[in-house]
Amino acid sequence: MQNKILILAGLFMMVMSSCSPRLTPFTQKLYKENGWSERDLQSIQFYLSQDIVLTRQMREGESAIKDGKVKVVAGREIEEVRFPKGTPGVLLFIPKINRFAISFEEGGDDKYMMFGPNQKYSGKYMMLAADWDRDYGTVSYNDRVYRTDSNSAYSALLIDLKAIRKTTIKKKTAKGRTVN
Score class of each variant (00 low, 15 high):
97 I>V: 14
61 G>E: 09
87 T>R: 14
128 L>Q: 15
94 I>C: 12
163 A>E: 15
49 S>Q: 05
38 E>I: 11
13 M>E: 13
104 F>T: 04
146 Y>H: 04
148 T>N: 03
58 M>K: 08
98 N>S: 10
54 L>T: 04
14 M>W: 09
102 I>S: 04
106 E>I: 15
31 Y>H: 14
26 F>N: 08
9 A>S: 15
139 V>K: 04
99 R>V: 10
146 Y>K: 02
16 M>Q: 14
36 W>Q: 07
1 M>E: 10
19 C>M: 14
166 K>T: 09
57 Q>N: 12
154 Y>F: 08
94 I>E: 10
75 G>S: 09
100 F>H: 03
48 L>I: 03
46 F>N: 03
177 R>A: 11
128 L>N: 04
151 N>G: 07
170 K>A: 11
81 V>C: 03
135 D>T: 11
90 V>N: 12
73 V>L: 13
150 S>F: 08
159 I>G: 06
112 Y>C: 01
97 I>K: 15
126 M>S: 09
104 F>L: 13
101 A>S: 09
132 W>M: 06
14 M>P: 02
81 V>A: 00
112 Y>D: 04
19 C>D: 07
140 S>Y: 01
48 L>Y: 03
85 K>R: 11
16 M>I: 09
179 V>M: 14
158 L>D: 05
160 D>Q: 05
40 D>M: 10
74 A>L: 15
72 V>C: 06
89 G>I: 02
6 L>Q: 08
60 E>H: 08
58 M>C: 10
128 L>P: 01
54 L>M: 07
83 F>N: 02
29 K>M: 09
115 F>H: 02
168 T>V: 11
89 G>S: 01
93 F>G: 03
29 K>V: 14
111 K>R: 14
43 S>Y: 08
76 R>V: 05
138 T>K: 14
1 M>L: 11
91 L>I: 05
40 D>Y: 04
4 K>W: 04
97 I>T: 15
69 K>Y: 00
132 W>T: 00
112 Y>I: 02
21 P>N: 13
157 L>D: 04
92 L>I: 05
150 S>I: 06
162 K>Q: 12
24 T>Y: 11
27 T>P: 06
33 E>F: 01
60 E>Y: 07
167 T>R: 15
81 V>M: 01
121 Y>V: 10
136 Y>P: 01
166 K>D: 11
109 D>K: 14
27 T>H: 03
